[in-house]
């Protein structure tokens, strides 16, 4: 495992296929675009399959960062590497660095539990626990040792409000979360992630199992949430990336082809493959 490199290192152009991460050198560059995640030559293998190759990216605080790309390009794998969920697959091997707030997440000083508390995750399919709505949202705080009913009540209400579902469920907090619709379940899952007060929220295709109306609600939510959180969202829906994100990274066959402000990616991409993909010519 690589030791922590100098905190401010921003790796340039690692390989010929990888373009420089330009998202942060553009006109919007300013002091307030603080990075939450940086990766330095990050590589990942599933057994012999080199799934992620020399990934050099940077994601900023209080922004929605989208990751797009065709199926099997490694975008889900990458986002799961950011909170080390990818390690649940036993054959995974990694190389290189991922820095969360300048701290190497693979360093022993940071436990996975600590990392995953700070970096929450919303999954592709709504996956509430077979418990009441209240117990679902209170799960995180309880796991972290918060017992006081009064505090839990407040956290549950705030999280449900922030996830824009409080009004729909406030009268049935003790009912099983499985009784809700898919879109409501997904917002419960977002509320559940918010309840631990994370710093970053990873979303792995959070709307792919939802109907259009629920999708719109979740997208609006992302827009709201970025005021207080940093969001990294994987999506195979390019319109969604264009609508919600500040920067977009285009993954292709395990490489980052291009990472730039979303506007640039969609209107004036530098790479032909990016242009082909965002204009719907393949993928």
């Amino acid at each position: 495992m690589v030791n922590i490199m100098e905190a401010n290192t921003i790796t340039k152009n690692a390989g010929t296929a990888v373009l420089e991460d330009r998202a942060h050198t553009g006109t919007q560059e300013s002091a307030e675009r603080k990075p939450v995640f940086k990766t330095n030559n990050f590589n990942l293998w599933y057994g012999d399959n080199h799934a992620l190759q020399d990934i050099n990216l940077r994601f900023n605080q209080n922004e929605v960062s989208a990751i797009i790309g065709p199926s099997g390009c490694g975008k889900s794998t990458f986002v799961k590497a950011l909170n080390r969920m990818v390690e649940l697959v036993p054959i995974v091997r990694t190389e290189g660095e991922i820095l969360y707030r300048d701290q190497d997440i693979f360093n022993r000083k940071m436990t996975v539990e600590e990392l995953r508390t700070k970096v929450g995750m919303v999954f592709q399919k709504p996956n509430p626990f077979p418990k009441s709505i209240y117990d679902n949202v209170a799960y995180g705080p309880r796991v972290h040792g918060i017992r006081k009913k009064k505090i839990l009540d407040e956290v549950v209400e705030k999280s449900l409000r922030d996830a824009a579902i409080w009004d729909e469920v406030k009268d049935r907090l003790n009912e099983n979360a499985y009784g809700l619709s898919g879109g409501q379940q997904q917002r419960i899952c977002i509320a559940r992630a918010l309840a631990t007060e994370p710093d970053v929220i990873l979303m792995d295709e959070p709307t792919s199992a939802l109907d259009p109306i629920s999708t719109t609600k979740v997208e609006d939510l992302m827009h709201e949430l970025k005021k207080n959180y940093s969001i990294i969202v994987v999506t195979h829906n390019m319109q969604q990336a264009a609508r919600v994100s500040d920067t977009t990274a285009f993954f292709y066959q395990g490489y980052v082809v291009e990472h730039d402000d979303t506007k640039v990616i969609f209107e004036n991409p530098r790479d032909q493959r990016t242009e082909d993909y965002v204009s719907g010519r393949f993928g």
């Binding site: 649940l88 929450g120 995750m121 399919k125 799960y139 796991v143 992630a193």
Partner: peptide, 22 residues
């Protein structure tokens, strides 16, 4: 379902918390 397991682990719960509570 493993999705429920992942949800718990993904929130920083320990293995034992996931086992005992979920």
């Amino acid at each position: 379902p493993s999705t429920v397991r992942e949800a718990s682990i993904g929130m920083g719960a320990t293995k034992w918390q996931t086992v005992s509570r979920i």
